[in-house]
Amino acid sequence: MQILLALIAGAVLGLAAHFTVGGRDTRGAVVGPMLGAVVGGLVWMVLTWAGVGIESPWIWVASFAAPVVVFPALAVLTRARMQHDARERARLKLA
């Protein structure tokens, strides 16, 4: 049941990343929160399978800190989308 806390924390960090990383208009509103929730949940799951219990502070720190990777992931995604859009505009001779 505690995995829900990791999922919620990941979604909140993903939401923060969505609003702080530029180029919001090039990606969907749910990409950041969903990516954050997935990362937080995966870290929790992996540490649980590795035998780390909920009484250990490492599972909490890792699952709450791991979704920070959403910030650079959204930046890369935004840059790739802008480059793709520019190539498509050039291919269609729109710009």
Rank of each mutant, 00 (worst) to 15 (best):
V39Y: 05
G40T: 02
A17Y: 03
Q83L: 10
G22T: 03
R89G: 02
W60T: 07
Q2A: 15
G51V: 05
P33G: 07
V30A: 14
T20C: 12
G53C: 02
W58E: 11
W44M: 08
P67I: 10
A75F: 10
G51Y: 04
R87N: 11
A66V: 05
L4G: 15
A16G: 12
W60G: 05
S63W: 08
G28A: 10
A6F: 13
L13A: 10
G32R: 03
V69L: 14
M82T: 11
G23P: 05
A50T: 04
S63K: 03
V61H: 07
P67W: 10
V46E: 01
T26R: 10
L42Q: 13
V31W: 01
L35N: 01
V69W: 07
W58P: 00
A73C: 08
P33N: 02
R81C: 00
P57C: 09
G32Y: 07
I3Q: 07
L13V: 12
V70A: 07
A37G: 14
A29M: 12
G14C: 10
V30P: 00
G53N: 03
V68R: 11
H18Q: 15
S56Q: 08
T48W: 14
G36R: 09
W44F: 12
F19D: 03
F71V: 12
R27D: 06
V38H: 04
G10A: 05
A50E: 10
A95P: 07
G53F: 01
R89K: 13
W60C: 01
L74W: 04
R79Q: 12
V76L: 15
V43K: 01
V70H: 04
L47M: 15
M34H: 06
A16H: 06
L92R: 15
L5M: 13
G40R: 02
G32M: 07
W49P: 00
G28L: 08
M1K: 14
I3L: 14
S56P: 05
A37S: 12
L47I: 00
G53A: 10
G40S: 08
L94G: 07
E88S: 08
F64G: 11
G22H: 04
S63I: 04
W60V: 08
G22W: 02
V68H: 08
L94R: 13
R87K: 13
S56R: 06
V70D: 05
A95G: 15
D25H: 13
A29L: 15
T48F: 11
L15K: 05
G41R: 04
W60D: 02
I3T: 05
A86S: 14
R89Y: 06
K93N: 10
I3K: 01
R24A: 09
A37T: 02
L77K: 07
A16R: 05
L15H: 08
W60K: 06
W44S: 05
L77H: 09
R91Y: 11
A37F: 04
L15D: 01
W60M: 09
G36V: 08
R81N: 09
V61K: 09
T78I: 01
V21C: 06
V52I: 15
A65G: 11
L47T: 04
M1P: 11
A95V: 14
I8Y: 06
M34F: 14
V12A: 15
